[in-house]
Nucleic acid binder design. Structure first.
Length: 307
DNA sequence: TTCCCGTTCC
DNA sequence: GGAACGGGAA
């Protein structure tokens, strides 16, 4: 029994499966600027940004970010308020991640002497870097990662090889499928497949999917994909108001509580349901997240972005 | 309205 | 194991 068939889900000629995908990728793929660098810092920035945003919207932000903070040293020395402000200015959302990235840069300097760890386990020690990002950076910067498992990869494996919708199974099969020592091209290729061919609505023939001869979904016509949890509505959500607070403080420097409140929501009434108490709770959460600084002075409360 | 989607914290 | 975390675009 071969290693591949022992996995239970992969075709016997798994080597041909591998070659077909790599050839398909190398023949034609989207040219994103971060695919041209192996600088681990630049790669990390691109991965953190693209965790949350469609790739086409990340390009400008990534270039501007590296323009402003070209190295891990420059980012580590930056004021947090400037990094969070940049995030907001570029509509990147999830301000926490600007903080994580800044914190990770400091870690690289202070705990690793300015050199990024070169393997997934080391990279995962960095703030904001989980299993996916650790493998992505190890792969794209050092060609030294394990198989990445993101929702693209899960969808592909689920459809093509009927891998059950369980994280441990996805990880096992993804690892068995990846050719040893070729994580850079492999992880790029399999995510590209999920991104342009095996999307929610698949484009098997249009994108000339290289796996059609093996793909179970292509054979049966059942393109069901693993469930993606639906999001609570954004409009009116706490997250929306957090974003507004950050955006206002980004322009306004230090702002008094009630002044802030009236700019955050039109129905702000200091003693009302969405008044001081509500706003203070929001600010305290933002302060706990290390994004905002709240100060009480002479009976008034002021908020500003944390430096 | 739905899509995008990994990490942290509890 | 589940909730919280953004905001633009299709």
């Amino acid at each position: 029994m071969t290693e591949a068939s022992a996995e239970g889900y992969l075709p016997d000629d798994v080597e041909r499966v591998r070659e077909a995908l790599v050839e398909w990728y190398e023949n034609d793929h989207r040219e994103y600027p971060w695919r041209k660098t192996t600088d681990p810092y630049a790669v990390l920035v691109s991965e953190v940004m693209s965790q949350q945003t469609q790739l086409d919207r990340v390009v400008d932000a990534w270039e501007a970010f590296l323009d402003r903070w070209p190295t891990v040293e420059t980012l580590a020395e930056a004021d947090r308020a400037d990094v969070v402000g940049f995030w907001t200015d570029h509509s990147l959302g999830y301000n926490n991640r600007a903080k994580y990235l800044h914190e990770a840069a400091r870690q690289v300097l202070e705990a690793y002497g300015g050199q990024f760890p070169r393997d997934p386990d080391g990279l995962q020690e960095l703030m904001g870097v989980g299993p996916y990002t650790a493998n992505a950076v190890a792969s794209f910067a050092f060609d030294n990662g394990d198989a990445v498992v993101d929702t693209n990869v899960k969808r592909v494996l689920y459809r093509a090889f009927d891998v059950p919708d369980e994280d441990s199974e996805f990880e096992r099969v993804a690892g068995a499928l990846m050719p040893d020592g070729k994580s850079r091209v492999w992880n790029n290729a399999i995510m590209e497949l999920g991104g342009v061919a095996c999307e929610k609505t698949p484009a098997c023939d249009g994108a000339a999917c290289p796996w059609r001869e093996w793909c179970l979904a292509y054979e049966t016509g059942d393109f069901t994909a693993p469930d993606v949890p639906t999001q609570p509505e954004f409009e009116g959500s706490r997250r929306q108001f957090r974003g507004r607070v950050i955006s206002i403080l980004r322009d306004g420097g230090e702002v008094e509580l009630d002044a802030l409140g009236s700019r955050v929501r039109v129905d702000y009434v200091p003693e009302g349901q969405y008044g001081r108490e509500w706003l203070r709770g929001l600010l305290d959460d933002l302060a706990d997240d290390g994004l905002v600084h709240v100060a009480d002075r002479e009976g008034e409360t002021f908020a500003r972005l944390r430096e």
